[in-house]
Design a protein around this nucleic acid. Structure first.
Lengths: 119, 119
DNA sequence: AAGTAATACATCGTAATGCGATGTATTACT
DNA sequence: AGTAATACATCGCATTACGATGTATTACTT
């Protein structure tokens, strides 16, 4: 079964698809921080939100490690919120450091925009 | 010696710097194909050109493997050109497949632009 | 004459990261 | 009883930028 999916990936290996992945890899952290800044988010909510507002389709195995990473890097802080029923949610918000970094990132993007517009 | 540089990288590990790398990772192939389409290029020339026209600083250990990869993927073709003196140059140009892919990539970027502008 | 820098090719190993597969638990719908 | 949605999480693979390193030629500098 594993092997089947492995073969499938080899066969479907497409330059554009691969490139697209790399591109998202770069832009995703920006979108994530931006959305969290607007409003405190929990992981699952963020996945839905990314798809809705940025047409960015990501899976849980992308988002959860990323949120953990950003927390470890001091950009995010989290708190558990018990629900009346169901699984508790882990809400993430920006730390002051996170807000500062987001601002820096937007400046970098701004500069890249300029270069890109020439092409 | 190796270990020293390894430590150095750990210490200087910065979220923004790392993110910037990922971002370039996504945009670089686009710039490379774009520049080669305008005019046939050899590796060393391309490095200089990227810095001059796109403020994109890359090293040889990024560009040479990338050109090899793109050739293997059928996007580029190469030919050796002997110089009157010095080391021969390997010139790269777009294959028809490469031109088609570049067009697709520009469309993807266009779409991402739209999403980005909202932020 | 010797040393450095620029030009020109290339490869190795490490770090980083998206994503598919997989697992667990709860609730709601069919 | 079975499927789907909600909500968390980890493992392992594939991809790729980049520092370090190597080789060869030519030009400039001390």
């Amino acid at each position: 079964m594993y092997y089947f999916f492995y073969l499938l990936r080899i066969v479907k290996s497409d330059f554009i698809k691969n490139w697209d992945t790399q591109l998202r890899k770069g832009l995703l952290p920006l979108f994530v921080l931006h959305i969290i800044q607007r409003k405190e988010q929990y992981g699952y909510e963020l996945i839905v939100e990314l798809k809705a507002t940025a047409s960015f389709e990501v899976t849980e195995s992308t988002i959860y490690p990323m949120l953990t990473r950003m927390t470890k890097d001091g950009l995010l802080q989290s708190r558990w919120v018990e629900q009346g029923s169901g699984i508790p949610r882990k809400y993430y918000s920006l730390t002051p450091e996170g807000k500062k970094k987001l601002k820096e990132m937007k400046q970098v993007i701004q500069r890249l925009f300029t270069n890109l517009s020439e092409l």
